[in-house]
Every structure is written in C-alpha cells, then in structure tokens.
C-alpha cells in the first residue's frame, strides 16, 4: 500500500504544466513588481524622512495591496485549480480504484494546496527583498541599501497572514471538490470576498467571516505581531472543523 508521501509526490507530479503552478509564481511576483515600477517612477514621493527605515514603508505598502482582495482571490482560484485537475481529467473514479485510502487522497491533496500557499508566501517575501534591493541600487536616494530590513517582523507578519487564510482554504477545498465546475466555486468565492470587503470595519460580526481575516491581520496592532490574534484563532478553528466535515463528506458520500 502506498504511503502518504508517495501519494503526495504523485499529487505534485500532477501539478506539472498546470496553471495552478504559474498562479503561485505570477501571483507572488505581481504586486512586488508593480510596487517596484511605482517606486521607480514616483520615487520623490517615497523618500524616507531622516532616520526612517524605508523597508518598513515598502513592506506595508505591499501588504496593503495584497491583503484585501488579492490573497483571498488567490486562495479561491488555487483551490479550484488544484482540485480541478481531477474534475477535468475525469479521474476521481481512477483515484478511488487505486489501492489507496480515501484518507490518503484527501490528505495529500490538502497538503499540496497548503504547500502551494506556503510556497507563494515565501516567494512573495523573496520578491519583496529583491524588489527593495533593486530599488536601492537604481534609486540610491530611497536609501534601501543603507538600512537593514526587519526580517523577523516580516516573517512573523507573513506567518500571521498565512494562518488567516486557512479558514478560506478549508471552505474552498471542500467547495472545489463538490463543485465540478470551476466557475461555480470561483463565483461563490468572489461573492464572499466582496461581502467581506463590505462588512469589514462596518460591522463587528465580520470577525466571524473567514474571508475578512487577511484584512484583520493587516490592520491589527503591532503588539500582536508575536502571537496569533483572535481572528487568526478563528481561522484555525474554521480550518479544523471544515476540513474535518469535508473529510466525512468526502469519505462517506463523495463518489467522484
């Protein structure tokens, strides 16, 4: 019988040549690249005050752009694309007649989605550094090279943001399995994202809606950087519960 690692490897092979993989790379590069262009052309607007670290401002500007619609939409699309590989190939029936438990299938698929999300975050952080360093070389007055970026702070923030996506990952992982048509799960995702932007900061109950969590992480106070905030705990709770329910549905009722 195949081990979980083997099944996970085959899942990675399946993502070869897919748009899902490109989405991760392009998605991570898109905003740092745009911000790079803006800083290059409008550099006078971004000159740091004496003694100020330009990296901080640059990081915040980037996170502000991605946290609202970009990351939630990335999650929605990524889940739909990764799961969509099986729908498109009509291969659930094939998977279910391989000598491998449904638990392994479910877990390894979920692991692939989570790996890709993590990979995207890491790439994003990497592109931020590259973009800032390049700006420092090309526009010395921006003073990127004379300051050290707060790496620990950046990674902590990225970690919190990543946890904030987990609720959405769980919901869309399940939806994408259940809805054969990619348009349906993406459509539902879009409606929820729009709803989230409307509810956020207008109604305190928005904190129970997983699609708002990356926005909450962005606007959270600085003291909370070292620990998980309330909404991130909720995100984890959503993840555990929805992934669990999704597994019961998948193993008992899902026939492909």
């Amino acid at each position: 019988m195949a081990t979980l690692t083997t099944v996970y490897q085959t899942e990675l092979i399946k993502s070869k040549n897919t748009f899902a993989l490109w989405l991760v790379v392009l998605g991570a590069a898109f905003v740092p690249f745009l911000m790079f262009l803006i800083y290059m052309n409008k550099w006078e607007n971004f000159l740091p005050k004496p003694g100020e670290n330009p990296w901080n401002q640059f990081f915040i500007a980037n996170w502000q752009v991605v946290s609202f619609i970009f990351i939630p939409f990335f999650i929605v699309l990524l889940c739909a694309l990764v799961i969509g590989i099986e729908h498109k190939s009509n291969s659930w029936k094939h998977l279910f007649t391989l000598p491998v438990s449904k638990f392994s299938v479910y877990t390894s698929k979920l692991s692939v989605v989570l790996s890709l999300v993590l990979f995207c975050y890491l790439l994003f952080v990497l592109f931020l550094f590259m973009s800032g360093t390049l700006l420092g070389i090309l526009r010395p007055k921006l003073a990127f090279l004379s300051h050290t970026p707060n790496v620990a702070g950046l990674l902590q923030f990225a970690g919190k943001s990543l946890v904030a996506t987990l609720g959405m990952v769980a919901v869309h992982f399940w939806l994408s399995i259940r809805l054969r048509n990619l348009i349906q799960s993406v459509g539902i995702g879009l409606v929820c994202i729009v709803t989230a932007t409307i509810l956020f900061q207008r109604w305190e109950n928005a904190v129970y809606f997983p699609y708002t969590y990356t926005m909450y992480t962005l606007t959270g106070d600085k003291e909370s950087l070292h620990s998980l905030s309330k909404h991130e705990m909720y995100s984890l709770a959503y993840f555990v519960v929805v992934i669990g329910l999704g597994y019961v549905d998948f193993s008992r009722f899902y026939r492909g």
């Binding site: 399946k14 070869k16 040549n17 007649t97």
Partner: peptide, 10 residues
Amino acid sequence: IETPSLYEHL
C-alpha cells in the same frame, strides 16, 4: 471504466 481517466496536461 468509461472514458480513460488521463491527465491530459501530462
């Protein structure tokens, strides 16, 4: 079973 389950992008 039915149409073969192939990953056409591979």
